[in-house]
C-alpha cells in the first residue's frame, strides 16, 4: 500500500498577521511557519493505516519555497518514509489549479493507492487543491473524512464524511483522494529517535523542468485569479459593558437586544 500525503506549510495560526507594503500579501518578515494542522491529521492517518496493515510506504509531498524543507522534515520525524519537495521559482503565486497541476505532474510518476490531504489550508482557506488533484488524476475523492478503513482485498476504503448535520458512510474505490477533517485523529509528536532517523531518510527536490511543466500554466503566469487588495478587516469595536445588579443587567440586556440591536 503506497500512501501519499500532500502537505502545505502555513503561518502559525497564533501568528499576528499584518499586511505587506504592496497591499497584496501579508507581511512575511516575522512569521513562524507550521505544518497546516489538517495536513498533520492526514500524516497521522497515513501512519496509522501503515501500522494497521503492517506494510506500505508513505511519501509526503509539498510545493513551496526553501523554508518548506522544515515542514517536510517534521513529517519524516513523525514517521513518514520519504519526502518530495517541489521547489521552483516559477511555482510561486500559483492558484489552486496551478498547484494541483504541479502536484499532479509529480504524483503521476510515482505509485500510489491512497492520497491523503487536509480539508483546507489554514492560510488561504480554499479547500480546493486536493479535490482538483483528484480530478486531474481522474481519481474519485471524498472530502471531510473523520474515519477511514481500508479493505485491501477489494481495493476499497470505507470512510465517514462529516457534513453540516450528518455523517455519510461512503465506500470508495482505490486509488482515491481523501481530505481529512479535524477529529479524525490526534497527530503524534515526533520522538527524539524519530527526529534522528529523519535525517537519513530519502529527501528529493524536484523542479519545474524535470516535471515537464509549461510555465504559462503555473505560478503567477498561469493563475486565473489575481489578488487586487489585501486588508485587515476593521476590528469590531468593543460595545457596552452592562453593570449593576444581575436582575437589572439582564433586563437592560434584553431591552437592548430588542430595541437597539433588533435581534429578538
Amino acid at each position: 500500500m503506497n500512501i501519499i500525503v500532500c502537505i502545505k506549510q502555513v503561518p502559525d495560526t497564533e501568528t499576528k498577521i499584518t499586511i505587506a507594503q504592496s497591499g497584496l500579501d501579508i507581511d512575511r518578515s516575522n512569521i513562524s511557519y507550521i505544518v497546516n494542522p489538517y495536513d498533520e491529521n492526514a500524516v497521522e492517518e497515513a501512519l496509522r493505516i501503515k501500522e494497521r496493515l503492517d506494510k506500505g510506504a508513505i511519501t509526503v509531498i509539498s510545493m513551496g519555497p526553501a523554508r518548506v524543507t522544515e515542514a517536510l522534515r517534521s513529517c519524516l520525524a513523525m514517521g513518514v518514509d520519504k519526502a518530495i519537495h517541489l521547489k521552483d521559482e516559477s511555482f510561486e503565486e500559483s492558484d489552486s489549479y496551478g498547484t494541483a497541476l504541479i502536484l499532479y505532474e509529480a504524483i503521476k510518476k510515482i505509485p500510489y493507492d491512497i492520497i491523503l490531504c487536509g480539508r483546507q489550508a489554514m492560510d488561504d482557506d480554499n479547500g480546493a487543491v486536493a479535490i482538483q488533484l483528484a480530478e486531474l488524476l481522474n481519481l474519485p475523492h471524498v472530502s471531510l473524512i473523520n474515519k477511514i478503513e481500508i479493505d485491501e482485498t477489494y481495493c476499497k476504503a470505507t470512510v465517514h464524511r462529516k457534513t453540516e448535520d450528518n455523517i455519510e458512510i461512503i465506500e470508495c474505490k482505490l486509488p482515491a483522494v481523501f481530505t481529512c477533517h479535524y477529529g479524525l485523529n490526534q497527530p503524534r509528536y515526533a520522538s527524539l529517535p524519530g527526529i534522528m532517523k529523519a535525517r537519513q531518510k530519502p529527501f528529493q527536490e524536484i523542479d519545474s523542468d524535470s516535471l515537464g511543466l509549461n510555465k504559462k500554466e503555473i505560478g503567477k503566469a498561469g493563475s486565473k485569479l489575481q489578488v487586487i487588495k489585501m486588508e485587515i478587516p476593521s476590528a469590531r469595536r468593543a460595545g457596552k459593558i452592562l453593570e449593576g445588579e444581575p436582575q437589572d443587567v439582564v433586563k437592560e440586556l434584553t431591552r437592548l437586544l430588542r430595541e437597539e440591536a433588533g435581534v429578538i
Binding site: D125, Q226, I232, P233
Partner: peptide
C-alpha cells in the same frame, strides 16, 4: 487566514 485578513480577488 481564519478571518484575520480579507483578500479582494478578481477573475482573469
Amino acid at each position: 487566514y481564519g478571518g484575520k485578513t480579507r483578500a479582494t480577488v478578481t477573475s482573469n
